[in-house]
Design a protein around this nucleic acid. Structure first.
Length: 552
RNA sequence: CUGCCCGUAGCUCAAUCGGAUAGAGCACCAGCCUUCUAAGCUGGGGGUUACAGGUUCGAUUCCUGUCGGGCAGGCCA
């Protein structure tokens, strides 16, 4: 419909001037129903070129537009906007289309089955997942669902930093507990983790428990001096915990990549050697440096420390080379904003490999930090201090659906305040229930009708008269465009906003009109409309990983 | 000090890559259930979009500066 309108306008404008190409024609969806179903500002854009007032130009374009069955009315409004109002013929077509496509309505094939990889959460296995990881999970998983709905072949991936100094830290913390050295003791590792979960790990380790992790059984030796065993057991323990939390959050992954494997398979060595060979490195102060300034960084970075270890971003580069080698032309990394400095380093490292990797590859979505409030005070999240608001706590207290909604409903790049008490007290009138309620209400009506909803279809020209009906039809017709927008912008919150509006339109309609009326034609028409709405809400909620209940 | 993100109703957040009268929810006020789910609807109050300039038909959006918040700038991850 939008494309059709663009064609019509382009052909009309061509008769006035040839100084305009097709992609300059912008079709918008007006906010107010009084402004129609579509509108264009083309006359305002042309006023400078044609040296006429926008309203005069709008009239000229209007005169050149051919007759069409799609629109009832086209009018000039405001400063010179052209507003288009859909005809009953179009209303019928839209509703029937939704009913026909059902679960697929709103999706598209723009991805053409191309591969996209989305990495998110990627928490270090040094503690339970907290609210910040939850935000990453909600946003990352929803982006993945959006890409699937847009016809991409999606791989969801989780990267474990299971090597490096923080893991040693973890091991020493657990070991201290095994030796009965508590966090407040002077011999407890200075940078150790002080959360109570460390004691749990130590207890299970001493009890020689076995843990299921990534399909393998990891058995604790119970030997206090066996640091490797403590390390492996601790990682397995925490990975297992994280997996359970993510499962409860309706989030799954296809691939888990371990940092330690990048060392084992010599991928890190390969990256370092290639960078040396390509002449992007130098030695200084006993360390090996990468000249990232060649690629836009403001400072060169150390790759290999004077003690022989690599800095964290070197395996990151190796990991991304691996992604590239696996054929992912499109890669999206969802991370916390505290990682923003790694972007330039990873990209610089990849450029230095001279493998024709695009400069802006991979793409990043960075979510800002969450401020957690509890009992009117800010909770500082610190793994080392052991203060926590875990994802599990949230799911238990607020519920999976509401938590996912809340965390996905805001732009990633705005800081947000999560008030635990407020979330709990409002759990009953949380916006997500408002949307789910609309879905359940429709289900109730359809059940009482007792007809076969799969045979719902409008085959005579419908007469939708009320504002409520027109608004609702316009809304559901916008869904495919919202999906495209949300996917292009990597912004799931567009879906939550849309659903809230869609539910509001439905509730208004519900209070405005009765559906199960005596007149058969009116009844079928109205039921078809709300059934179509139910499909849209269901599909939208699915993009957010939120359930669509039939009863509430 | 430098770079990135942000600043919108009392509070939490939107605003279709520059559009029409800046919108929702919570909170507050007044109405609506003998009829399909009142977890709902209808109406009302509440704004100099941090501030000052600039660009143009038109700015919450783009540019410059100031103020305020967050995150980075470790041979930590």
């Amino acid at each position: 419909m939008k494309d059709h309108l663009t064609d019509l306008l382009f052909n009309a404008v061509k008769q006035l001037t040839d100084e305009l190409d097709q992609n300059q024609i912008v079709i918008e969806r007006p906010k107010l129903i009084e402004h129609g179903d579509f509108s264009t500002n083309i006359a305002l854009v042309l006023s400078k070129i044609l040296k006429k007032t926008p309203r005069d130009i709008a009239q000229l374009i209007l005169d050149k537009l051919p007759e069409t069955t799609h629109f009832d009315k086209i009018e000039i409004a405001g400063a010179g906007f052209l507003n288009f109002f859909l005809s009953p013929f179009s209303h019928q077509a839209i509703i029937n289309q939704v009913i026909e496509e059902k679960d697929n309505y709103g999706g598209n094939k723009k991805g053409k089955s191309r591969k996209v990889q989305i990495e998110f959460v990627s928490a270090n296995p040094t503690g339970p997942l907290h609210v910040g990881h939850g935000r990453g999970a909600a946003i990352g998983d929803s982006i993945a669902r959006l890409f699937e709905f847009s016809g991409w072949s999606v791989t969801r991936e989780f990267y474990y930093n299971d090597a490096g100094a923080q893991i040693d830290n973890l091991m020493h913390s657990v070991k201290a507990h095994c030796l009965n050295i508590k966090p407040d003791h002077k011999d407890f590792p200075e940078n150790g983790y002080r959360g109570s979960y460390i004691a749990d790990i130590a207890k299970d380790y001493l009890a020689k428990t076995s843990i299921q992790c990534a399909g393998h059984k990891i058995q604790a030796s119970g030997d206090i001096n066996d640091e490797d065993s403590i390390r492996i057991f601790s990682i397995a323990y925490l990975r297992n915990e994280q997996d359970k939390d993510l499962e409860a959050f309706q989030t799954t992954f296809n691939v888990y990549t371990l940092e330690s494997d990048l060392y084992k398979n010599h991928q890190v060595d390969f990256v370092v050697n290639t960078l040396i060979k390509e002449g992007h490195t130098y030695e200084k102060d006993g360390a090996l440096w990468l000249r990232t300034t060649d690629f836009g960084d403001d400072k060169d970075r150390v790759m290999k420390k004077s003690d022989g270890d690599f800095t964290y971003f070197v395996p990151d580069v190796a990991y991304h080379l691996d992604k590239w080698t696996r054929g992912f032309i499109k890669v999206i990394n969802e991370q916390g904003a505290d990682h923003h400095s790694t972007i330039s380093r990873v990209r610089a490292g990849l450029q230095g490999l001279n493998k024709n990797i695009p400069k802006d590859w991979p793409e990043y979505v960075l979510h800002q930090m969450i401020t957690v409030m509890k009992n009117g005070a800010e909770v500082k999240i610190s793994k080392r201090a052991g203060s926590y608001v875990t994802l599990k706590d949230l799911i238990d207290e607020v519920g999976c659906d509401a938590t996912r909604y809340f965390l996905a409903a805001r732009r990633a790049d705005s800081q947000l305040i999560f008030d635990i008490d407020l979330a709990k007290s409002q759990s009953n009138d949380n916006p997500v229930y408002y949307i789910q309620y609309a879905h359940a209400r429709i289900e109730g009506v359809l059940n009482q009708w007792k007809g076969d909803r799969n045979k719902l279809w409008i085959d005579t020209m419908p007469s939708f008269e009320t504002q409520a009906e027109k608004k609702l039809i316009k809304r559901i017709s916008e869904f495919p465009e919202v999906v495209i927008l949300a996917t292009d912008e990597l912004a799931p919150h567009q879906i939550t906003n849309f659903l809230k509006d869609c539910a509001a339109d439905l509730h208004s309609y519900y209070n405005d009109s009765k559906f199960l009326v005596d007149d058969e034609l009116t009844k079928i028409t109205r039921l078809a409309l709300i059934y179509a709405t139910q499909c849209v809400i269901k599909n939208g909620l699915a993009l957010l990983g939120i359930t669509a209940p039939k009863k509430m």
